[in-house]
């Protein structure tokens, strides 16, 4: 197990995550696979709690794969994020493939200026097993469909109905190319999103418990901040009008670089810590303590 971790972390040497060998024992042998393409397979993943699902939505070139690569890269480079150490994945090949060119990019090798993007029909489900010394393990699943898939969902009304993962997502992050939002491609961006959102709405894919967020990527390529601010507000209003729900949070990031990028790291922390919020469904301390209830009745 440790040699596998060293093998993986060796590209960017980092401390081995602080997870005791005994805690990892059950998962030995999972460093094997390509990303998954069957949503139902998530139910077969071994986890001590419900997998936390984040779906990245966006069209070609909006930076979803860059984002997931940076997430993976950060987990490998840092000992932990918000106390959670990355110790396993069923989809390591898929993650590595997405990250390969990113690493070259980080090392200023010019043959790969952009992260290779996910292509149509490619497996898209990526898993991250994380462990916290106090709070235990959690499984984060990120869906990184290709931009073409979403273009298809926007163009063909009923197609998105088959995407059961979106309906069951804990968090949906809509990626927006901030550069396009400020130039002449803005119309195509908004039109495509309008179509997609209407199709999602018509197919009942917006559930109240899902966190909806807008991620304005490539923020470093925005030249006119005033214009960006106005277009951003217009887009948020547009989204909320169509889906009839509030967009919870918005983020302005550059997903393709980890250098001096605290905003991106904060977003990663948010994904790990707050994708599934504690619900009011959790028992009140007193309600299950039948012995004290008995004593109080007697009083």
């Amino acid at each position: 197990m440790d040699d596998k971790i060293e093998l993986i972390t060796g590209v960017n040497p980092a401390e081995v995550p602080a997870v005791k060998p005994a805690e990892r024992a059950d998962n030995i042998g999972q460093f094997i696979g390509e990303a998954m393409s069957d949503d139902q397979k998530i139910n077969a993943l071994m986890s001590s709690s419900k997998p936390e699902i984040t779906v990245l939505v966006g069209f070609v070139g909006y930076g979803k794969t860059s984002f997931v690569s940076s997430f993976y890269q950060t987990l490998l480079q840092k000992e932990d994020i918000a106390g959670y150490a990355f110790y396993d994945s069923e989809t390591l090949v898929g993650l590595e493939r997405r990250s390969f060119l990113r690493r070259l990019n980080d090392r200023n090798i010019e043959i790969a200026p952009e992260t290779k993007r996910t292509v149509l029909g490619e497996p898209y489900l990526l898993t991250f097993h994380l462990s916290h010394p106090q709070y235990g393990d959690k499984l984060v699943v990120i869906s990184d469909h290709s931009g073409e898939d979403y273009a298809d969902y926007a163009a063909k009304k009923g197609k998105i109905a088959d995407d059961i993962l979106i309906k069951n997502a804990d968090r949906i992050m809509f990626f927006v190319d901030s550069e396009k939002l400020c130039n002449e491609q803005r119309l195509s961006l908004t039109t495509q999103y309008q179509q997609l959102l209407r199709n999602m709405k018509e197919n009942g894919l917006f559930v109240r418990k899902t966190k909806l967020q807008l991620v304005f990527n490539k923020i470093d390529k925005v030249n006119d901040e005033n214009k960006f601010g106005k277009e951003k507000e217009k887009l948020i209003t547009n989204f909320e009008d169509i889906i009839n729900l509030k967009i919870g949070q918005t983020f302005e990031i550059r997903a393709n670089s980890l250098k001096n990028n605290n905003k991106l790291i904060s977003l990663f922390e948010d994904i790990i810590l707050h994708t599934v919020e504690e619900t009011s469904n959790q028992p009140q301390a007193s309600s299950l303590d039948w012995v004290n209830e008995m004593i109080n009745k007697k009083k």
């Binding site: 469904n281 959790q282 028992p283 009140q284 301390a285 309600s287 299950l288 303590d289 039948w290 012995v291």
Partner: peptide
């Protein structure tokens, strides 16, 4: 079942399905 719940003392809120548990409690 209720006797075994002593093991949850001090960490009641880590358990799920309060309503179902309370349904079992009716049969003490």
């Amino acid at each position: 079942f209720m006797n075994a719940m002593i093991l949850a003392k001090g960490r009641w809120n880590e358990l799920s399905n309060e309503v179902v548990i309370r349904e079992i409690y009716k049969f003490h």
